[in-house]
C-alpha cells in the first residue's frame, strides 16, 4: 500500500490502525485546509473512524492499577471507561497514583469520575476479594 505514484502524496498521512489486532495500514488524505478528505485502507468501519480520529484528535484507552488494601493482591487493575485524549494518558495515571481502595472491590466499581475533566470515568476491571496481599502471608 505504498503511496509511490500517488499525485496527492503531500496530503497523505499513514497510520497503522489499532482498532483491532489486524493492524490495517490506513491512509488519510487531507485537503489544503487540513480537513480530512478520505480515509483508505481500512477493513471495517472502525478503521475508517480510527483514521479520521487519529488524524484529528487521537484518543487512547488507559489501563493501569491502583492500590488496594486487604485484597488478595496488592494492586487492582482499572481502566478508563472510554478513550481519553492521547496527551492526557500520563496525567491520568499520575492522578490515580494516590488512590487506595479497600477490599473487597467488585468489577465495575467507580474509582474516579470525570477524570481530569474529560467526562470519562475510571472503573475497576476485576473483582478483588479480601485476602492477605500474598498467599504466603495468608498462611502466616
Amino acid at each position: 500500500m505504498a503511496p509511490d505514484d500517488d499525485p496527492h502524496a503531500d496530503h497523505l498521512t499513514h497510520y497503522l490502525c489499532i482498532g483491532c489486532p489486524l493492524g490495517c495500514r490506513l491512509e488519510v488524505e487531507e485537503d489544503d485546509h487540513g480537513d480530512v478528505l478520505e480515509v483508505r485502507g481500512f477493513d471495517c468501519k472502525k478503521g475508517k473512524e480510527y483514521g479520521r480520529q487519529e488524524h484529528t484528535e487521537p484518543k487512547r484507552m488507559v489501563t493501569t492499577t491502583v492500590a488496594v488494601r486487604g485484597g488478595l493482591h496488592a494492586r487492582v487493575p482499572v481502566k478508563t471507561r472510554e478513550a481519553v485524549p492521547k496527551p492526557l494518558v500520563r496525567e491520568v495515571c499520575r492522578a490515580l497514583g494516590t488512590v487506595e481502595l479497600t477490599a473487597p472491590v467488585a468489577i465495575g466499581t467507580l474509582v474516579m469520575g470525570d477524570v481530569l475533566g474529560t467526562g470519562v470515568d475510571i472503573i475497576v476491571t476485576r473483582d478483588m476479594p479480601e485476602g492477605a496481599p500474598t498467599r504466603a502471608a495468608q498462611r502466616g
Binding site: T134, R135, A136, A137, R139, G140
Partner: peptide, 9 residues
C-alpha cells in the same frame, strides 16, 4: 515470586 514471598515471611 513465591520464593520471594516465603523469604519475606
Amino acid at each position: 515470586w513465591r520464593c520471594m514471598e516465603l523469604l519475606s515471611r
